[in-house]
């Protein structure tokens, strides 16, 4: 039998991978959750038909949303992670012994359960004593926080479905309030390669810019995301992601990474012109 999973990247582009076995398929209150075992990418988590992570390339995403802020402010102690039900971001954060407290807010408990069962590669740090897991809406959770976190990572799904509220202006404003003066906001920022994503990237960038004095974008290569070229946002009240890079201090953490290094850190904020054009258009 020849079994293939296809994700629609645009109306005219499909991304297809061969499936060994479908391990899980259920609809939670919020979304359709599927897990496939595949030949090329290992196990794959799919929400509402969109690939969230694969075992083969998840390290890129998870290193890039954690190591970049940790290298700008190695003193980060209190972290809030929104989304991230697969546990990959938590796994990376738990490698930093200096982090004292991690609050994770995931709206869909079912995602956490399923990942614990089928994706131990990422869902391996939920028992860390520094972690408190809250099953609730991120928008609601962050609204009640003030001057509390050194880092907020928005590890969300796309700007439609359950993640929609995490791309709004009020959410970024609430994040700014929840962060300390040296706080950093990292968010999943979609991609500008396909036209159908461009408006959302612009809107998101504009909204973050309205809440933070420093709002930058960096790039990553994630083979299983649409176009493979993916963006993250780095926003803060006063820290610059490159000028304030503490490369030597980060190296002292002694954390072995497969994608990230401090030279790449400097480079990933240098963006192609077609991306710059899109971002410039936001101002």
């Amino acid at each position: 039998m020849d079994l293939w999973f296809t994700e629609k990247h645009t109306d005219d582009v499909n991304f297809t991978i061969r499936v060994k076995k479908q391990l899980y398929s259920e609809k939670s209150y919020y979304q359709q959750i599927d897990i496939f075992d595949t030949y090329e990418f290992g196990k794959v988590l799919v929400l509402d038909g969109f690939i969230m992570l694969t075992e083969k390339d998840e390290f890129i995403y998870h290193e890039m949303v954690t190591a970049v802020p940790m290298a700008v402010n190695p003193d980060i102690k209190n972290v809030l992670v929104i989304g991230a039900g697969d546990g990959g971001t938590i796994r990376e954060l738990c490698r930093y012994e200096t982090i004292e407290k991690i609050d994770m807010v995931e709206i869909d408990e079912q995602v956490v359960k399923v990942c614990k069962e089928f994706l131990p590669q990422t869902a391996c740090s939920f028992d860390d004593p520094r972690l408190d897991l809250y099953i609730e809406d991120g928008l609601k959770f962050v609204r009640r926080k003030e001057n509390e976190y050194d880092l907020i990572i928005v590890d969300s799904t796309d700007p439609f479905g359950p993640g929609e509220g995490l791309f709004t202006k009020e959410f970024y404003g609430n994040c700014s309030k929840a962060l300390t003066d040296r706080g950093i906001l990292i968010n999943q920022h979609e991609s500008t390669y396909y036209d159908s994503y461009v408006d959302m990237v612009k809107r998101t960038h504009r909204r973050i810019g309205s809440a933070f004095p420093v709002s930058m974008v960096y790039q990553t290569h994630i083979p299983t995301y649409p176009s493979g070229h993916w963006l993250f946002g780095f926003a803060s009240k006063n820290l610059h992601p490159v000028y304030d890079l503490k490369a030597e201090e980060w190296k002292k953490f002694g954390i072995k990474t497969r994608y990230y290094n401090t030279e790449l850190h400097k480079g990933c904020f240098a963006l192609p012109n077609y991306v710059l054009d899109v971002l410039d258009d936001c101002n």
Partner: peptide, 15 residues
Amino acid sequence: LEIERFISSLSEIKR
């Protein structure tokens, strides 16, 4: 979502 957005926006408008 609409209810949460409304509440969060009011919180931002206050701030």
